[in-house]
Structures are given as C-alpha cells and as structure tokens.
Design a protein around this nucleic acid. Sequence first.
DNA 1: GAAATACGTTGATCTAGATCAAGGGCCATT
DNA 2: AATGGCCCTTGATCTAGATCAACGTATTTC
Lengths: 253, 253
Amino acid sequence: MLDPASIDALKKSHLFSGYAARDMAEISRFAKLVYLESHAVLFRESEPCSAIYCLVEGLVKLCLYGPKRQEKIVEIIGPDQTFGEAAMFSGQGYPVSAVAIEDSRLIAVDAFSFMRYLRQRPELNWTMMAMLSRRMHQLVGQVKSMSLHNAEQKVAKYLMDYYDDDFPTRPVSNLPPRRADLAAVLGITAETLCRVIANFRQRGWITTLDNAIVVSSPVDMRGLIMDVRQPGESSNRRKDVAVPSVDHLPAAG
Amino acid sequence: MLDPASIDALKKSHLFSGYAARDMAEISRFAKLVYLESHAVLFRESEPCSAIYCLVEGLVKLCLYGPKRQEKIVEIIGPDQTFGEAAMFSGQGYPVSAVAIEDSRLIAVDAFSFMRYLRQRPELNWTMMAMLSRRMHQLVGQVKSMSLHNAEQKVAKYLMDYYDDDFPTRPVSNLPPRRADLAAVLGITAETLCRVIANFRQRGWITTLDNAIVVSSPVDMRGLIMDVRQPGESSNRRKDVAVPSVDHLPAAG
DNA sequence: GAAATACGTTGATCTAGATCAAGGGCCATT
DNA sequence: AATGGCCCTTGATCTAGATCAACGTATTTC
C-alpha cells in the first residue's frame, strides 16, 4: 500500500503518467517503497522478476558482468524512470543486474499482481508497448555503438546524445557521477576515456570543470561520429565489405 | 489481399499463431506478398516503418552499418519469423536495415492499418508484448557478448546457444549460410572467425563438414564461456597444453 | 594532523584482433 | 579443359585500446 505522495511520484514516470486515478489506486495496493544504500544490489541478472521498479530519488545502474567481473553498464536510471518491465513479460528473469550508485528510494510494483491487473485492462498496455519499443531502439543503438564505433566516436556520440543545441554553453546533462561509470557505459576503460577527453580538450572541442563537460565544437564532434575526413585523404577502402545495393527496392506500401 | 495459403503461412509465425480466423481474415485485407532477390534491400535504418514483415521462405539479415560501411548483423531472420514490430510502435523508424541473403518471399502487413486494428482489439497485444520482451532479452544478450566476451567466447557462446543437449551428434542448427555472415553476427572479422574455428577443431572440441559444425565437447565449450581456469594458474600466460589430437576428422571436404 | 582511501590523470608496455596479402577449393560458364 | 568468381583458409604485420604502474589531489577516518 502506497501513500498519496508516492502515488504522485509514480505518476511522474512515463509508464504510469497516462493512468486514471482509479487505476493508480488499484496499483498502489500491490506497490511498496524500497530503500537502497549506494552499492546495494536490487536484483541480479537472471533472477526471476518479482517486481518492476520506479526510481523516486537517487541513481541506479543496470549492468552486466563478464566472466572476469568486468562491468558493462547498459543504462543509468534517474528519478522518475521505470525499469524491469521487459523481464515481467518475457518470463525469463531480469536480463541485467540493478545496483544503486547513490542512496535511492524506489517504488516496487509487484509483477504478478500487476500482470493480473493488466489482463483485465488491456488498453493500459499501449504505454507499455511504447516503453518497450523505445527501449529496444536504445538497445540497438548500443549494439551499433559497441560494434561499429571506436573509443573517440563512442565518447563523442554519448556527449552529442545529451547535448542541447538550444543551449550550447550548458554542460552536457545526465553525465554519470564518476568517470569510471561513464567508461563502463561506453564499454571502454577509465584510462582510455580519460585520454579521449584530454584529446578533445586539447583540440578545443570541449571544456571541462569537475565532472561537467561543455561541448564547444558540436560540428567537429558530429563530424567525428560520421567519420568525415579531409578530402584527398585516402579513406581505408575495402572492397569486400557488404554494401546493400540501391536497386531492387521493393514496393512495400 | 492475401490468398488462403499465405494466411496459413502467416499463422505459422509466433506473432500471429494465436489469432482467431476472423482476425486473420481482417488482417489479410491489408497484407500482401513481397518477393526479394538475394542482396535486395527491404528497408534501411531510420526509414519510417511502413509495414511489419513475416518471412515465408528464404533468409533475411537485420543489420547496422558503421561510418566505414562495416556491417554488424543484429539478427538473421528465418522462415516463419516476423520482424519490424518494434519500429511500428516506437514511431522512430526501423532501427536496422533489412537485406535478403537468399531469394525470399515475405508477407508485408501494413503498419498503419494493423495499428488501427490493434486499437480495436487490445487483447491481441499480449503476443506482441511477449515478442518485444523476448527480443529485448536477446538484444541485451548481444550487448553482453559484444562487450564482455573475446572472440573465442563469442563463437563458443553462439554455438552453444544453438546446441541441443538431446542430440549431441547433430550439427549446430541455424548456422548462417556463409562464414562471413556468422562473423558479422559475432562482430569479428571472417579471418578471426576462421582461426577460432581452426583452434577449436585442433583441440578436438568441434568437428566441421562444409558449413556444418558439430560440437564434440560441450563441457569445454561451456567452460570457455564461463572462463574457468585451472586453480593456481596465472591468467595471462598462454598454456601450451598437449591436447590429444583427434584424428578421426573426415578431412573436412 | 597523519594515514588511509578513492578517483582522476598520465606514461609505458602488451596483446587480441584487425588489416593486408597470398594461396586453394569449388562451382559455373565458355 | 581452361577461366574466372566466390569463399574459405592461413600467414605476416599493424594498431587501438587494454593493462600495468606511478603519482596527484580530494575526502574520509582515526
């Protein structure tokens, strides 16, 4: 059972924002508050999904661990974001681990009860679908970044994803609190990240102050991502890479 | 408008298998057949989603291209599989490109009409949700494999994912038709893949015949993925274990 | 205030895997 | 039978980024 303030907090999330008051009242009956200290583990990869979560306050990372304990952060969850929905539907357990990186307060919505409720009200699934689709896109973006970009491009891509063209002098928002976290998000080491940032600073493309980073040459950054090179410079031409041909385009309408 | 045989083909897919006859009749009204020659492009990354597809016959790759045209295959679609659903809901366009790697026959279901129909029948969304969730899991698995495994582990993981414990002597199923495709799936070069396979063969962990691969030591393969090492042994030094050579190989060709 | 701890930074190596290059088997076409 | 195209395979290098190591600067602990 949830207090009114927490119900309001839930409603601030994208997933629940469209829900009617009576839906929220019902859902609050099988939701509860959870407190996590920094570094505390909320759930681990492959654990069965007992609840989906909405972060109210603090910061949580969703991550994967390799055989040698290397960490890959799949996503950093901030306040008003929900997570765990996909696991609820797939019935395959959580695909990632969730670990607090700041002291956090969360709302846990019991998965079984929530599923039962959704079965009664299938219209509510529209926001859920949108949620899952958006997350899939983001995940595909990660796959792309991991497999097709080098370290500089990864950093540039990340910074430009959070860069706001309307406020060029504003520091990039939502940066992870520690450099090591950003490195784990990008799938590179902290040392490499540090060197890349130093390079960008030397070239005058960014300026830094503590954790904050201000992009001062978005054009160059974007150029780097798209791998534009000076004319005349021979780009590594490989003939054997597959390039989809332009013809044969089907009339898919 | 679809002929009865094609409607049957649609129903063989996981997405439509639970649909009632009258739903299928309705859907067939805004579905049509599409034929692709090998190498033909069905759609490209970021193109708006006009339809979702069900492959009836042939083989299609979903892939991403880097700034230098490097290819990363996100998934290889076989008969009776559907794709494009996520793009339909996200409203962000297709996250990947789709290219035929064999002459293919597909059914295209118009996205707009299908969405409209789903709005009338929200219960139908349950299979859709399951679909999306499963695909998300798979994608997270890819992220993990890309960021936390080395080349040998990637290959081993792939082979064991398609290995059937009940039929140990059966070749790994669903292997891509060409080695280069498998390499693009794993995010390594064809040369590296070739060397890894040669190593596995020398160690007696697999046997090969043409494209087919039979895993003969699943225990070792699984051990490699989990990075088990002999106690007391330093991780870096390459150990030159005398592997008893398995000489009953059918000369591969 | 000294010591310990945690991070960020920089430099020096090392290495897994990419890249480059050269055959070789197989099939289709002539 | 010869030719050419397409892959697969193997060998020889090259290199981006990991790893190892040392140091600086805060911040916390006693």
